[in-house]
Nucleic acid binder design. Structure first.
Lengths: 235, 235
DNA sequence: GTTCGTAACGAACAGCGTTCGTCGCTAGAA
DNA sequence: TTCTAGCGACGAACGCTGTTCGTTACGAAC
């Protein structure tokens, strides 16, 4: 039975939590995790909260700010040990792996991360750790600043690449990571095999080696390159 | 004066070139250069070509493919010398700087690049150069593959970051790079100065050093880290 | 009991990528 | 020369997007 239109329908005790920035960020992160960045729209968040998109703008300036907040929320999961400058290399490696792992766990938050200049609370907390560690290990401030910056660019960049692959996997209908890798590597290999060997002898010759590695090995290899480079600059 | 509607307006010698993939890619790149990635839409390209958006889809599968093509077009500008394995480090450095320069010149093509798995002709050409150089310098194929991959991730990642800043500069109305840097660095510095020094002593203490460097120095510093790391792995 | 500030929100705007169905031209067959 | 098949071009539309405007409804303060 429809209510008579002249009778204002009194709301039937809305059980929804009151809107707040925290709730919005929480919801955004949940959507990101479950369906990826492409599914994270203002309308989608609003819908999840049983309201219209306009309501969000009282708590969040725009989508960009929402993404920053979601990103900082994720960074909050990163656990940092006490600094031990004597073991700076170990600690930096463990830190990078931890960040990489946290970013990978949250589908493609990295895609939102690389576009932001981090100013959230957790960014600073992490910066203090890495920068402090390098300083205490004896590095000059400007070098420490650059080393930190390069390291984080590398970690986030690699995670970004990973999330692009993840999005493709999603789009191609597959849901298993190994299956996707096989499918993808197979396509690339087939493409490489079609190349004229006289123009591209090296690529043609080492197809298997060019395809071989999965993401984790590559990430660790590059990380070691950077850490060794930093070590060479330590006093 | 509007023409009478019953009189079919014969087209007044349309001076437009016939549609083709090449023309579309060309136009896309022009828009990208002039107004950035955000302005590069299918509709915008079509408009530039005096047609509707649907017409493009006969020559280009979708926007993603268009971006790949535009990216490969840009890579075509990269000049590569003959390989000289004895000078691999020099050549790799020069190569990285060249790629960085070309990407930077085309506003924010890097933003489109990092999202793509490169399979265009020019990608392969460049891959053959870098990979071949490392092999000929004595590296094992799998290591060479990873080193190449990490190097290109770094270069593109840094260019990506740069283009994000460029987009912000654009959005903030400024048009001079130095002016933007000053404005931006000032804001960050002010924000850092507000931080509680007891929680973030290192960041608070070295604000100037954390802000100081512009993009080019940082890029070269990280590049040298990677190259040194690679050198340490050369036989 | 009235007023006021403000969170909430419905509706709309301008733009997006993409698809469908149709139109008009051209090249080959009859 | 006429007919037809194929195909590039494209107008219109669909279902999205982020964001803004103007109004509503409600709780607190006076």
């Amino acid at each position: 039975m429809p209510a008579p239109p002249w009778r204002k329908s009194r709301k039937p005790a809305p059980p929804k939590r009151q809107l707040s920035q925290e709730l919005i960020v929480e919801t955004g992160l949940r959507i990101l995790d479950a369906e990826g960045l492409d599914a994270l729209s203002m309308r989608r968040v609003a819908q999840e909260l049983d309201t219209g998109p306009a309501s969000l703008y009282a708590h969040v300036a725009n989508k960009e700010e929402l993404l920053e907040l979601v990103y900082d929320q994720v960074l909050g999961e990163i656990q940092l040990p006490g600094r031990d400058p004597a073991r700076w290399k170990e600690q930096l490696r463990a830190y990078a792996v931890e960040v990489h792992r946290v970013l990978a766990r949250h589908t493609d938050v990295a895609r939102a991360a690389l576009a932001n200049i981090p100013t959230g609370e957790n960014s600073i907390r992490i910066g203090e750790f890495v920068f402090g560690l390098l300083i205490e290990a004896g590095m000059a401030p400007r070098q420490a600043s650059m080393a930190m910056d390069r390291l984080s660019l590398y970690v986030v960049g690699d995670a970004y690449e990973g999330s692009v692959h993840y999005a493709r996997m999603r789009a191609s209908g597959l849901s298993d990571q190994g299956e996707y890798f096989e499918h993808f590597a197979g396509q690339i290999a087939a493409y490489y095999r079609e190349l004229p060997p006289d123009r591209f002898p090296m690529v043609s010759k080492f197809i298997d080696e060019l395809i071989a590695d999965d993401g984790e090995d590559r990430f660790l290899y590059g990380l070691e390159l950077l850490l060794d480079g930093i070590e060479a600059r330590m006093p």
